[in-house]
């Protein structure tokens, strides 16, 4: 763990607003609410597109149409989740920067999942032009699905890897 990252975490955690979040029984759940509401929109719409690329479920809309109709709220959900996530991070930053599950989640899994998501959204216009999707679309749909499940697995594992005393 680099000293500069820990120094940044300490500075962030000591800011007035971060202490306000961590010190209140009522504010903290509202910040969590922001994070979870954003995640519901983001993950829910990601999964719906991945399932469509995989050819699962109804084929009422093509993957191209579905991607187009979900696009704006998909990224709105992402922005809400990032805002809430940053505030949650700030409230306990020194705990998070030494937590291996958090570091794997933020440093490896989220960037990989985001890259695959952007590829899927861009390519869904060609892959999803007709009702049946090609094999490459199915592979990328499954890959994104597994990466987001990996992100969630790392997230639920964070308490298991907490360093006591921080």
């Amino acid at each position: 763990m680099s000293a500069s990252l820990m120094a940044f975490a300490k500075w962030l955690q000591d800011t007035h607003w971060a202490q306000w979040i961590s010190g209140s029984n009522w504010v903290y759940p509202f910040v969590q609410l922001t994070h979870f509401s954003g995640l519901s929109l983001w993950i829910g719409t990601n999964f719906a597109l991945d399932f469509r690329l995989l050819g699962w479920g109804k084929k009422r809309q093509t993957a191209a149409d579905l991607s187009n109709s979900l696009f704006a709220w998909n990224w709105t959900g992402f922005c809400i989740a990032i805002c809430g996530g940053f505030m949650l991070f700030a409230a306990s930053a020194t705990k998070y920067v030494v937590n291996p599950a958090f570091l794997i989640k933020l440093g490896i899994l989220i960037p990989c999942a985001l890259v695959v998501h952007i590829i899927n959204q861009k390519k869904s216009r060609t892959w999803g032009a007709s009702a049946d999707t090609p094999r490459i679309a199915k592979i990328f749909g499954l890959l994104e699905l597994l990466l987001w499940l990996g992100v969630m697995t790392a997230a639920v594992s964070i308490p298991t890897f907490e360093v006591p005393g921080l």
Partner: peptide
Amino acid sequence: LCHYAGFFLVVGSTALVDLRVLGVAGRSQ
């Protein structure tokens, strides 16, 4: 993991249909 993934799927899919009924999402469909 199952609880969160399932819940995100429930809320995300329901919210998008609600937003479409409200006229602020997916107006091409």
